[in-house]
Amino acid sequence: MRGFRADGAVAIAELDDEERLVVARIVADVALLLGAEPFGSDHPGDSSPADIDIDDPFEHLRGLEESIKEPSDPAILRLLPNAAPTDREAADEFRRLTDGELRATKIRRLRRIWEQLSFGSNGASDEEWVVNEDEAFATAAALTDVRLVLASRLGLTTDDDADRLHQEIDLATHALETDEEEVLPIDHERVWLGMLYQALTWLQETLVEYVARPKETDV
């Protein structure tokens, strides 16, 4: 994996086939948490009034009722936080007014990443992830959403938590490299998610550096 670098009017990262598959899959999973249909399904678009079952005309009203409730999944709550934690009525009202649009925006951003990793971009090699300059900020925001979900699953709430995770990964890597896996306790799922979290953090940092780079100006 290579981080994003500027190449004319685009940013390019390099991921092998397995890396592309892993990132595309976690992006699609986060979109599912937000209520999207499975990416790659027969109905790839975001839900809309046209998708409402005509045999159940009140389906969209029940969806609206659900959307104003505080999410019970802490990962979703990180993506859709309360606007007024100390005022439940105000928080619920704000959620009612903004939840649908916010979810749709996040899903569109995630879908765009999934499409780029699944189908590539015109003229790009199989290992290149090409992000147009005008999409870079939205892509970075989508990566933030994925990282928030992973952080929730990993129990990362402070810098100390992140430091401990890095230490766990280093220890696990050492154990695997020295055949001490049976001696040192390793939570393979946690280590795998942690390594994914680290990789996405690094990718996002390189993309943000691309966005913040000094722009060439005409003389």
Rank of each mutant, 00 (worst) to 15 (best):
P85Q: 05
I186V: 07
G100H: 03
A138N: 15
P74A: 10
L143H: 12
G155M: 00
P214R: 07
I68N: 09
T217R: 07
A124P: 03
A104S: 02
D187L: 13
E209D: 14
D73M: 13
G45K: 11
E216K: 00
L15V: 11
G63Y: 02
D51R: 08
H43S: 00
N122L: 14
T144S: 14
R25Q: 05
E135Y: 06
R147Y: 00
E101F: 13
E18W: 02
W114S: 06
S125F: 07
L97F: 09
A104F: 03
T144Q: 11
V22Q: 11
L110V: 11
L110R: 12
R103A: 02
F119K: 10
L80T: 07
Y197P: 07
R2Q: 09
L61G: 07
I68S: 08
D42C: 12
D161R: 10
D99Y: 10
I107Y: 07
M195R: 15
V130N: 00
R111W: 02
L15K: 09
A212T: 14
A75I: 02
T144K: 13
L33M: 09
A90L: 05
D187M: 05
N132H: 12
E180D: 10
D51M: 15
K106V: 08
I76P: 05
W192A: 15
L117K: 05
L196W: 03
W114V: 08
V183I: 09
T86C: 05
R5G: 02
L176Q: 13
R78F: 08
L15F: 11
G155Q: 05
E127Y: 08
N82E: 14
F94L: 04
D87L: 03
E182H: 12
R111F: 04
T158M: 12
